[in-house]
Amino acid sequence: MFETLKMKLWQKKQYIKDIKNAPMREQFRGLPKLTNSICNGCEQCIKACPNNAISINPLKIDMAKCTLCGACKNFCVGAINFTNFYKLAADKPEKLIVTEEITPELYYQRAIEVRKEIYSIFNRSIKFRQVSAGGCNGCEMELNACGNANFDMGRFGIDFVASPRHADGIVITGPITKNMAYALEDCYKSTPDPKVVILCGTCAISGGVFKDSLELNREFLDKYKIDLYIPGCPVHPLTFINAILDFVRKK
């Protein structure tokens, strides 16, 4: 037992105190920064992107499709760059489109609108059931990491629960395969009202690299209202936690 307690002393405090302003390593590929004037229209970026996330004249990147792989940047003359800005979530798909005018501040400012009913119903504490519908275990591992001693999402009242019956909403990862479509809908129906639906990761939002697969069934997304889109491949824990904190905020 004393050996175990000694580990506590060795570990010291590990949690990130100010999660809203947590610093991110500069190498992280986050929100793209586009400069139209440098673009020479060579279309190399369009060829390099496996997800058709880019269009030119003027330059645009759709974060719903972008997997942040950085392949476009490697072929570009300098018009496409990636900042390390990680607060990428938005409440509407239109807001995920990045153009030259969009700075990190502007993107973040308009990304998630305050919804009074969310605050009044959930009072900042919100519990999720996670459904992996074809997710590759990248987003799943990052969502698990949200609960570890570094990020410690539980201190804000945000948690993943074991049953949809205990949940206030569901978090979907993966492109939604045919074989999971039924289970996903079942899970949605088992969650008591009022409930929210969150798409987590590029695969969930647009199908990502699997968009051309014949084994997907994405009807669920047409049937039900989606409340929040969190892009990333995989979603960084800081992106996820900040997205939820902004989503349930009062003002």
Binding site: S132, G135, N179, E215
Partner: peptide, 9 residues
């Protein structure tokens, strides 16, 4: 449940 038809893709 996770079958996404990767080999065809």
């Amino acid at each position: 449940y996770q079958h996404r038809g990767v080999e065809d893709l």
